[in-house]
Amino acid sequence: MSTSAALFTYLLRLGDDNLVLGQQLGALLSRMPELESDIAVANVCLDHLGQARNFLTYAAEVEGAGRDEDQLAMLRDERGFRNAVLMEQPNGDFAHTMARQLFVDAYQVPLYEGLSGSVDDRLAGIAEKAAKEARYHLRHSCTWVVRLGGGTEESHRRMQVAIDAMWPFTSDLFAADEVEAALVADGLAVDPVSIRPRFDTAVNGVLAQAGLRLPEDPYQRIGGRQGLHTELLGHLLPELQALYRANPGVEW
């Protein structure tokens, strides 16, 4: 695999993670428990959308086929998406949204901090800004997981159910293949396996503080990086793409 082909796929993976998560968070506005949470979820959503646009725009440039961020976002089908399967898991109740976010944030903080040192200046620049955002997201999701874990009996129960539901999709975040291998050797990308310990430390720390535990069942679902998704993505994409696809070639 050529470096540019690997970089293109790597950028799609980074971009799609944020696009799919941003799309999900966008559906939550006006549905949160309080106005303050509506504002907070919009902030996090905007950060992910901004990251998605940066990564996808760069991906399109690396590809050099004249596509732009919107063509990449709107004209690929399920099998072409490269996001980790965690991102497409449903919003569920507030506990599910926060459990998914905790795992994403605990992964993205070390990922982006590592990528800030990439030999690719463009990628390093995008990651440096994203790392600041991810650190803020992690503070926010940790606060809520601790609050819900240690709040009422019901919130504790719901938070544990949510952790159990989201956990089986976390290994997909770290599933590396020849794409990463090609780029890590040249100092362009971060080896996902190398950031796993920081992820585990962060997650275990917050769960201990919240009085929650990881499920004992070791089952993990992987495949997103190769376009092997859960069935949920096939319902999310038509909503994202319908208007764009119904009017080919126009400006919006």
Binding site: A27, L46, D70
Partner: peptide, 26 residues
């Protein structure tokens, strides 16, 4: 229309706008 906005730029602008409305409410 957030989930169906026709471009990523329009989607982000719309999210920011709806967020402003929550902020005005507060």
């Amino acid at each position: 229309w957030i989930t169906r906005a026709p471009s990523l730029r329009r989607k982000a602008i719309l999210v920011a706008k709806v967020q402003d409305e929550a902020g005005h409410g507060l």
